[in-house]
Design a protein around this nucleic acid. Sequence first.
DNA 1: TTTTTAGCTGAGTGCACAGTCACCGAAATA
DNA 2: TATTTCGGTGACTGTGCACTCAGCTAAAAA
Lengths: 200, 200
Amino acid sequence: MNKRQQQKQKTRELILKTAKEEFSKNGFLNTTTSQIAQSAGIAHGTLFLHFNNKNALIVEILDIELDQISASIQKLVTEAADLEQMLILYLNMLQEDEELFSVLARELPFYPDELRRLILFRDSLIRSHFHKVIQAGIKAGKYRSLHVTSAVSFLFGTINYYLSLKNIFITDGSVIEKFKTSIVSTFTTLITCDQGANNE
Amino acid sequence: MNKRQQQKQKTRELILKTAKEEFSKNGFLNTTTSQIAQSAGIAHGTLFLHFNNKNALIVEILDIELDQISASIQKLVTEAADLEQMLILYLNMLQEDEELFSVLARELPFYPDELRRLILFRDSLIRSHFHKVIQAGIKAGKYRSLHVTSAVSFLFGTINYYLSLKNIFITDGSVIEKFKTSIVSTFTTLITCDQGANNE
DNA sequence: TTTTTAGCTGAGTGCACAGTCACCGAAATA
DNA sequence: TATTTCGGTGACTGTGCACTCAGCTAAAAA
């Protein structure tokens, strides 16, 4: 690769890196291409030499990001001893990149179709891991025989809700950190019966 | 009231009515003031004679709307025989104005502070009704002794999640209708223990 | 060394939008 | 009837944005 090609790739990577930062900070919808260019220290026009439009940029960023997440999830699934452990590890992972996940949770309904499908597909893969583990647990008599899909929706819906309203619940710090134990314990309560039971 | 005052009030009400329709259809963020004026059959400028700016318009609409909702809730609380009944009635109410609630769920994180606080305050009042009923149920030994706030958050978080992604889950019709029974039964399962229990 | 190529530049373009204001005409008042 | 008042009008303004393109310069090729 000659000097020109090297420089070009370097610029491209700089744009991706800077865009991800700005995007995590202010969201995709509220980040302008000029902002990204300025933060990266390049001309506004340069951005469009590397990406056809703003949308192509975000698609590429998320493609990379979601790949890494998928890998983390894969690792997490094999490492976790049980469902509770898996949920905790998952929440930890969300916490590590909480700004980004918060933005995604908030902005997802406004993204163009292509982007939405991309994100929701990855999301469904993660859900299916939880689904399987719960299903297996029910068969083993470990969990109550509830409707698994609904239970998983409750879990992911709630997490998504906390993430999307992150900056309402807390001004700084982590929402996941704040609600982690409550999410885990409430979900555990939901799927088991031996805990918090009350005589009628 | 003379002819002029009558006409003025009529125009004002026309704007409010039209704006609410447009707002339910496309959301507040994606509705332009020109659109509203055009749909209402008035000049663009007229809108700003009645409301200082776009934001004042939406604040007024929501103020009226949220008042009606609060009244409905009050009625609902007194009518409902038990928690399950109350939840069903609540979901029915959401379903009746589902377009609007879906917009609110999606756009809430992007609203200016004043508006957000307005909505969240009303929301917290509704939650507190459920909180009380569950609390009472636990004392009466009817429900498991779980962390009430968390349980309520699970419920409202999930409902909010379904509403915000309404147009992803379904293309037309009602999300609430589609998931109503699953939400009710899953939440009932969560707070009670005598259902779906499995021997360990 | 001279010529060509290609990544980068940033002022410029077009567009969408919220909000303005000089003017109009019908209703109210004198 | 003559004058004033005021709700309504819509072309216009200012702003912010994504995206463009003629020109520049340094690297690559001749």
